[in-house]
Design a binder for these strands. Structure first.
Length: 537
RNA sequence: GCCCCCGUAGCUCAGGGGAUAGAGCACCGCCCUCCGGAGGCGGUGGCGUAGGUUCGAAUCCUACCGGGGGCACCA
């Protein structure tokens, strides 16, 4: 473009950045840009003329088969098949690193998700967070970020006492208090505590309550950890709200906010003036009775995260907590940060599941909501993970168990996994036939279906980078589904292995490169979602 | 009352201001002499309504209609 301006063909300021897109339809080439449309006005020339002036220069560059001006003034660039075929080599030689990038290099990201209360089993909403949070963590890491996955344990509120009281009541054959926990797991848990702590029911009231509470807490937390472990979701840090208080982080957080001048006292309580930063009301940090609020913990936790060196704190919250968004951002602002840079809140909408055409509400265990474990039992781990990962988290979801467990193409996870298994099988056959992919001759890959597939493979790193930047891991799943389709169409049209007594030709070998590259991308993509890539199904 | 999210095909959902709005299911047809038919090909069918910004809007803005969620010295 600079050349066009220098030569006097165009009189316009050269933009700092030119957006290049991958067109949706291949008639529009491998790459396209609309700069000419944007420059038409400042250049004082019709867009197509601007485009043509640029096209002339681009045609001189190597590796391009065609540079066309199309429509109102789009520039469509088509790679030649040799340049395109090289993608197969790039993918195969990068292997499990293909797709990794450095767009988020040096970013220290704290990714907090699930953060369930340690008072019961994980449910459907937690399952969504586990999947999306875990996949996002993988995607961010793939984009080069330094990610710490964190689970915040709400072990300090009055709900803990309700929990302990419920367990204690059941142990004495009394009904669970109305503000207690009513799930089926409570009697089980209570019985296990009684069995594991001899004499617990003879302790004095207060001591006993504390014992039930602490034992219940410990056991529930262990259970959640084990369940998440089975769910292939791992955390680097389990942060406890109690520790935050015990370690003095709360005082430090408060001090930080005081320094910034947003703390005030009113009616005996200590407040944070979050309304300075768009919150709809100020928030209490220390109640008039001297107790810290949950909000105080939140502020301390944020300050603590920043003190630990994180550039960005990502919070994944359920839709019922969306009221937190303004507060969290106000906290960051009160701490002297720019919330737009240091805080990112992702909201997860509700998940409903349908069985036999009706919404599944009743859980045997939790009493009201379907648990994560029950969902996994009904649908299988890979299916649950993939299914929850393929939708943006802020869209409400209705999943039909009968559909997602059907092992047919109704079910995207099977469609994608099948493509991988089919390739694995083909590669096994190649091994048995003694066909080696040998030296790649990329120029032989000039079939339309080969081009489609190579183009798709070439897009993967961009898909990962975009998913990371936008914090939308579902893009990876959608991409994989398209890739699987593109592969099936290739497979249908392009014979890979030599038939019967046919000699092995360079084209067979070149196609083997493409097939192996596809396997790599499917496996890498599934891995980002925490879903297995089976060799056989 | 105030605030947030969502309205895209019969159903479940994709679509970062770009070209002819996509996929799966459902429905109607078609394709197996050899690499996994758990596959492929074709057809029917849609942006809640009304304005605005823009060369260009499903996408951004406003209003309205419809659905969901949230308001605490609770956690």
């Amino acid at each position: 473009m600079q050349a066009a301006v220098d030569s006097g063909d165009l009189t316009v300021a050269v933009p700092d950045e030119v957006r290049i897109e991958r067109p949706k339809v291949k008639e529009h080439g491998d790459y396209a840009t609309s700069v000419a449309l944007q420059l038409a006005k400042p250049a004082g020339r019709p867009p197509r003329e601007v485009a043509e002036a640029l096209a002339v220069r681009l045609r001189e560059a190597p590796g391009f088969a065609a540079v066309d001006v199309a429509g109102p003034g789009f520039l469509n660039i088509t790679l030649d098949s040799a340049a395109q075929g090289e993608i197969a080599r790039t993918v195969v030689s990068a292997g499990s690193d293909y797709g990794r990038g450095d767009t988020l290099a040096k970013q220290q990201i704290n990714l907090e998700f699930i953060s369930a209360n340690p008072t019961g089993p994980l449910h459907l909403g937690h399952a969504r967070w586990a999947v999306v949070g875990d996949a996002l963590g993988r995607v961010l890491s793939a984009a080069g970020a330094d990610v710490t996955r964190e689970f915040y344990i709400n072990d300090r509120g009055v709900q803990m006492d309700h929990f302990g009281r419920s367990l204690m009541a059941v142990a004495h054959g009394r009904p669970v208090p109305s503000d207690g926990y009513h799930g089926d797991y409570v009697p089980d848990l209570s019985a296990r505590i009684v069995a594991g702590t001899p004499g617990i029911t003879d302790l004095p009231e207060q001591e006993q309550l504390a014992a039930f509470r602490e034992e219940g807490y410990r056991m529930q937390l262990d259970e959640q950890r084990e369940e998440l472990d089975r769910f292939r979701t791992h955390f680097d840090v389990w942060a406890s709200e109690r520790d935050l208080h015990a370690s003095g982080a709360v005082e430090r957080g408060l001090a930080r906010l005081r320094e910034q001048g947003h703390v005030f006292e009113k009616e005996g309580a200590v407040w944070l003036r979050t309304t300075d930063f768009g919150d709809d009301k100020d928030r209490v940090l220390v109640r008039s009775d001297g107790g810290y609020t949950y909000f105080a913990s939140d502020t301390a936790y944020y300050v603590d995260k920043r003190a630990r060196g994180f550039d960005v704190a990502i919070y994944m919250l359920g839709a019922d907590h969306h009221g937190y968004v303004g507060r969290l951002k106000a906290i960051a602002a009160c701490a002297g940060d720019d919330p737009e840079k240091t805080v990112a809140v992702l909201i997860g909408q509700m998940v409903k599941i349908l069985k036999d055409g009706e919404e599944l509400r009743l859980s045997k265990r939790a009493g009201t909501i379907v648990t994560l474990a029950e969902f996994v039992e009904l649908a299988g781990l890979d299916t649950v993970r993939y299914t929850l990962a393929r939708y943006p988290s802020d869209s409400p979801l209705t999943l039909d168990i009968d559909v997602i467990t059907r092992q047919t193409s109704d079910n995207p996870v099977f469609y994608v996994q099948y493509a991988h298994a089919r390739i694995a099988s083909l590669l096994r056959n190649a091994g048995e036939l003694g066909v080696d992919k040998g030296e790649l001759r990329p120029e032989l890959l000039d079939h339309d279906r080969e081009g489609d597939l190579l183009r798709a493979l070439g897009e993967f790193p961009r898909v990962v980078a975009t998913a990371a930047e936008l914090r939308e891991p579902h893009r990876v799943a959608r991409y994989l589904e398209e890739l699987a389709g593109t592969y099936h169409r290739f497979y249908d049209a392009c014979r890979v292995l030599p038939r019967g007594d046919e000699e092995t030709a360079d084209l067979h070998r070149a196609r083997l490169w493409v097939v192996e590259a596809t396997r790599v991308v499917l496996a890498n993509g599934l891995d980002l979602l925490g879903v297995t890539a089976p060799e056989r199904m």
